[in-house]
Design a protein around this nucleic acid. Structure first.
Length: 574
DNA sequence: GCTGTTATCAGCCCGGCGCTCTAGCGCCG
C-alpha cells in the first residue's frame, strides 16, 4: 500500500505551501486530499490502475495526476521542486506551538534561520524579539515550544509505529527462512509514544534473514550488524532493532525485549531468588546449569510462580508483586466495549450521517452509541444551537424506530466556556440522554480559573462525562494547568464519569491518571471522539490505555448493557 | 487546489484570544 506515502507527500506539500504563503484554499485542498488518501480502505495503487480515483471527494484532475506520478516513481516533480525551495527545518518549525507559517517566514527572511537549533539559539540570545509581530512573550513561547518538541523528537504516535511494524513484519513473513516474527518493546506494551521498534524473528538462517532485511526500502543507515542483530535508522528518523534467534529461543527473546527495563530488572531479581537466571535467549536453572526454552510467555512467568502478565502491565508499577500475590487485574478486552459514547456526525464537524454511523457501529457489534456533536459556540465546527439540537433529537428518535439492533442516544459535547458557563442552559441539557462537557477555548487560563470551570461542569447535575479531561495533545500541546486531584475528587463525589479519549494523539486521560481515577473511585468511559466512520476503530487505543491503567471491566461504563448504562447515567441527576 | 455550476468563475469553516507597531494580525480549535 502506497497510501501512506501519497498522504505524507501531500501533507508535506501543504506545509511547504503554507510557509511560502500560498493561497489558503490550495493548501486546504492538499490537506484534504492527504486525509482522504490516509483514510482510504482501498489500495490507492489499485485505484490508479483501475482509473477509479475520480470518485474520491477532493481529488480533481491535478491531484489525480500527481498521485499517478507518486505511485509510478515514488515522488512527483512538484514536490521535488518545492523541497528545493523551502528548507526542511522551516517545515519542522510548524510543529512548534504558537509559531505559524507567517512568523516562520519573517524569521527566515530577516535572520536567515533554517533549523530549529538555530531558532533556539536566536531565541536564547533574544534576537527574535523586535522582529515584526514578535515580542518578548512570543519569543519565550517559542523557547517553551521547542523544549516540548525536543521531548518527543524521534518518537512516533502509535498508529505510525503500528503501520511501520506491520509493513516490516509482512515483508519478513514472506521470507522463506523466517519462522515466526513479532514486535516487542514499547509498541507491544502499547506505550503512547514509541521511540524505537524492536522486532523479534525466529529462523535457522539468520544471515539470510538479515541480508533480506537490508533490502527494506526505508533503511537510511545501518548502525550495527552482528550474527543475531541488525540496528537501522529509517528514512522517517525512526530506529529499528531486529533480533534474529533460533526458533527455540523465540519466546524468551520476545519476552526479553518486551518488558520495560525496570520490569526486567525486578523480574530477574525474583528469578534469582527462585534459582533461575533470565537471559536473552533462554532461562538458566542456576543449580544444574540446565538451559530452558519456554514455548510461550505463560511458561516463563509460570516458572517464577506467577500468572501471565500482559505486556501492557510490564512497567514495574507493582505488577510483579501483584502477580506473586495473584492480584493482577482482570484486564479489559476490546470485545468488552459495548458502545461508543462520543461521536460527531455531519450535523457538526463530522463527515458521516447519523444513519451511516449507527449502521457501522451495529456492524461492529455495538449495542449502543451516543451522537455528541459540538455546541453552538464552536463555530468552526458548525456547533448546534438549541433549535438544531432539538431537531437532531427528533431525527434520532425517528432513526431509533427505523434502525434495528442498535440504540442511538441523543447527546451533546457541550462547551465549557471561558467564563465557566456551559454553552447550553440546564433546561436544554436535561432533555438529552447523555451530556459530555469539555474545554475547547481559554487553554492558557491560570490553574484556578481552569479548575473552577471544570469543577462547575462536574457539579452540574446534567453533565455525565468530562471529555479529554486534561486537554493534552501528544507531541503538540501540554495538558492545561488544572488541579487534577480536585477534578478526580469532585468526579468521584458526583458520579461524573471521566473519559479516556482514544484518539491516538490525545489518549487523555493517560494511563497513570486513569489508574489514579480508579483508585479514587471515579468511573471511566472509553470513547473515540471520532469524526468519521473508520475512526470508530480507534477504540483499541483507549482500551490499551485502560489496560496499562490496570482498569477492569467494571471500572468502564461502556462495557455495561444498555439498561445498566442508562441507570448509571441517571444516577448523576439524583 | 476542488466543486458546482454553466459564467468561464466564485466560493471554499468562523470567530475568540492573545500578542503586538493597542488596532490589527496570527494562531488555533
Amino acid at each position: 500500500m502506497k497510501n501512506y506515502l501519497v498522504s505524507f507527500i501531500f501533507s508535506d506539500i501543504a506545509d511547504m505551501l503554507e510557509i511560502k504563503g500560498e493561497n489558503i484554499f490550495k493548501i486546504r485542498a492538499y490537506r484534504k486530499a492527504a486525509r482522504a488518501i490516509a483514510n482510504l480502505t482501498e489500495d490507492v495503487e489499485y485505484l490508479v490502475k483501475t482509473s477509479s480515483l475520480a470518485g474520491i471527494e477532493g481529488i480533481g484532475k491535478a491531484l489525480e495526476e500527481k498521485i499517478r506520478e507518486i505511485i509510478n516513481s515514488g515522488t512527483c516533480e512538484y514536490y521535488e521542486k518545492l523541497k528545493s525551495e523551502v528548507p526542511k527545518g522551516l517545515v519542522e518549525m510548524l510543529k512548534i506551538p504558537g509559531l505559524g507559517a507567517k512568523k516562520i517566514r519573517t524569521i527566515y527572511e530577516r535572520l536567515n534561520i533554517i533549523t530549529i537549533e538555530e531558532l533556539e539559539q536566536a531565541a536564547k540570545q533574544r534576537k527574535l524579539r523586535g522582529l515584526p509581530g514578535i515580542g518578548v512573550k512570543t519569543e519565550q513561547g517559542i523557547l517553551k515550544g521547542i523544549e516540548m518538541l525536543k521531548g518527543t523528537m524521534g518518537k512516533m504516535l502509535l498508529p505510525t509505529a503500528l503501520f511501520l511494524a506491520e509493513e516490516i513484519m509482512a515483508m519478513l513473513r514472506s521470507h522463506p527462512a523466517v519462522e515466526k516474527v513479532d514486535a516487542a518493546g514499547g509498541l507491544r506494551r502499547r506505550q503512547e509514544l514509541i521511540s524505537e521498534l524492536e522486532i523479534v524473528i525466529s529462523s535457522n538462517k539468520s544471515d539470510e534473514v538479515i541480508d533480506g532485511l537490508l533490502t527494506y526500502h526505508r533503511i537510511k543507515e545501518v548502525r550495527e550488524r552482528s550474527s543475531e542483530t541488525l540496528k537501522v535508522l529509517l528514512d522517517l528518523g525512526i530506529e529499528v532493532n531486529f533480533h534474529v534467534v533460533e526458533p527455540v529461543a523465540f519466546w524468551s527473546c520476545l519476552h526479553y525485549f518486551t518488558g520495560s527495563e525496570e520490569h526486567n530488572v525486578r523480574l530477574r531479581e525474583i528469578a534469582r531468588e527462585k534459582g533461575y537466571d533470565i537471559q536473552k535467549n533462554c532461562i538458566v536453572r542456576v543449580k544444574s546449569g540446565e538451559l530452558l526454552y519456554p514455548e510461550n510467555e505463560e511458561k516463563i512467568y509460570g516458572l517464577l510462580d506467577m500468572p501471565y502478565v500482559i505486556p501492557e502491565l510490564r512497567e514495574n508499577r507493582g505488577e510483579i508483586e501483584a502477580a506473586l500475590k495473584r492480584k493482577l487485574p482482570q484486564s479489559l478486552e476490546i470485545g468488552d466495549i459495548k458502545g461508543d459514547l462520543h461521536i460527531h456526525s455531519n450535523w457538526s464537524d463530522g463527515l458521516n450521517s447519523i444513519e451511516e454511523i449507527a449502521i457501522k457501529a451495529r456492524d461492529k457489534g455495538y449495542e449502543y452509541i451516543a451522537i455528541t456533536d459540538h455546541s453552538k459556540s464552536l463555530k468552526v465546527a458548525h456547533g448546534l444551537d438549541e433549535e438544531r439540537l432539538f431537531k437532531q433529537m427528533e431525527h434520532i428518535k425517528k432513526l431509533n424506530n427505523e434502525i434495528k439492533g442498535i440504540r442511538i442516544l441523543s447527546g451533546i459535547e457541550v462547551d465549557i466556556l471561558s467564563n465557566d458557563l456551559l454553552d447550553f442552559d440546564d433546561d436544554v441539557l436535561k432533555e438529552l440522554d447523555i451530556v459530555i462537557a469539555s474545554i475547547h477555548s481559554g487553554f492558557s487560563q491560570d490553574k484556578e480559573k481552569l479548575t473552577r470551570r471544570v469543577l462547575k461542569a462536574i457539579y452540574n447535575p446534567y453533565v455525565n462525562i468530562i471529555a479529554h479531561p486534561t486537554g493534552r495533545m501528544l507531541a503538540k500541546r501540554e495538558p492545561y494547568e488544572i488541579d487534577v486531584d480536585a477534578m478526580l475528587k469532585a468526579a468521584a463525589e458526583t458520579n461524573t464519569v471521566l473519559e479516556i479519549n482514544s484518539s491516538p494523539d490525545r489518549l487523555d486521560l493517560n494511563d497513570e491518571l486513569a489508574r489514579k481515577a480508579k483508585e479514587m473511585g471515579v468511573k471511566i468511559v472509553i470513547n473515540t471522539d471520532t469524526h468519521e466512520l473508520e475512526g470508530l476503530n480507534d477504540i483499541k487505543y483507549g482500551v490499551w490505555v485502560a489496560r496499562r491503567a490496570w482498569l477492569e471491566k467494571e471500572d468502564v461504563i461502556n462495557t455495561c448493557t444498555l439498561p445498566r448504562l442508562m441507570e448509571i447515567l441517571s444516577q448523576k441527576r439524583k
